[in-house]
Design a protein around this nucleic acid. Sequence first.
DNA 1: GCCTAAGGGG
DNA 2: CCCCTTAGGC
Lengths: 255, 255
Amino acid sequence: MKIASFNVNSLRVRLPIVLQWLAEYQPNILCVQETKVQDNDFPIEAFDETEYRYVFKGRKSYNGVAIFSRNEITNAKFGFEDEPKDEARLIKAEINGVSIVNTYIPQGYLPESQKFEYKLNWFSRLLAFFEKNFEPTDPVIWVGDLNVAPQPIDVYDPVNLSGHVCFHPEVHKALEKVLRWGFVDVFRMHCREPGQYTFWDYRLNSFQRNLGWRLDHIMVTKSLAEKCTACYIDKQPRLAERPSDHTPIIAEFDW
Amino acid sequence: MKIASFNVNSLRVRLPIVLQWLAEYQPNILCVQETKVQDNDFPIEAFDETEYRYVFKGRKSYNGVAIFSRNEITNAKFGFEDEPKDEARLIKAEINGVSIVNTYIPQGYLPESQKFEYKLNWFSRLLAFFEKNFEPTDPVIWVGDLNVAPQPIDVYDPVNLSGHVCFHPEVHKALEKVLRWGFVDVFRMHCREPGQYTFWDYRLNSFQRNLGWRLDHIMVTKSLAEKCTACYIDKQPRLAERPSDHTPIIAEFDW
DNA sequence: GCCTAAGGGG
DNA sequence: CCCCTTAGGC
């Protein structure tokens, strides 16, 4: 049982990468973010030629989320239950008796901005969403681009980056609250190495110099964490002709 | 002695095609149009790695002409001598004792428009340019995207396209006047076949359906026409990954 | 359709 | 640096 998360930064531009990646890695589930495609323009034909089923919700230009799965996807719901729903940022679905929550959390622009307030609030609303829909003992997998590097080990320069909207005490507190509800960061459960990132800014040759951030995560409830056999980051898609600025993270489970 | 004309529709985008084409066909001279690149951004490095010399004149976004030659290029002049010079639409140069005039003639938008007036006027000014600079007995090669299909045989639907700015009685008359000064259309000297085109609109799948136009030409004075051994259109570059909407025309001479 | 540009976003 | 959008040209 393999589940992956990948911020594709335009599904249409990255379609060859995504199709090749699915064919090569054969995950059971792939959650993608930043599809940047309206539902009418979603490239369903390309995926209908694969064994993958899909659910998606997008909008013009920004955001957009999708789940691809080899097994049946049921009860797909998009966005929060209250306003603003942010449908192109959250999918909840059930696959093989496990609940999947795929999120693209707002980046937050600048700490002084309204957008940062919105981001912090988004974490609160997400916690309420988990509290309302699940018990911590349920099998729940929360994945996506969470736009937060949880620990100093998760950014290339923790001293100078402290205060950045993706590495900020307030955001760390907000994430911590959600995790404390009942999630385990399965990547850090398996790997304590520094320099393990999933995002590199397109500017500054960040990837070549490994000036990265670990922003993409696979968080699972405790019952599932016990069954997680591996979790790793795949940098291969970054070597493609037109790579995304993010790269996939994969977790494997014995169940 | 091989000379070719090719509207590249962005030299930077088509650079791989042009370099490969030069390496494969080894023409003595290649005239290109619609380089769409300012002189500061012209990719000279790429051509400095070949045996080709070059002269060019471009501007931002629109037009732009260049000549590549394996032999020395002398007395290169850009544009008309009077205003508007339209430097990014005309190069006159000498190569191997022959005069080359490479033109990208205005398309003309709509017959009712000012731009169409400008196009017709451009042909008049070009005739005056030839009269002033050459004798019909001189060896002169006039090539380029002339934005005119000379005969009914040169468009896919002569009845319905009659009146289009590139297949219009006024334009035919204007071209005819220039030809009568002393030029021979060497393509039609060698080939009377219909369906021989050099341009296909990107829209409507024109290339696949061969809904084309013969807009790119090699016109030569009589003394040279006698030495022309072949003239043909090369559709191979249209099979590239990112083809131009035009394709090269090539003439061969024994001299 | 495919090129260009300029402006917003990360 | 690479994505998006809109607008203009052909």
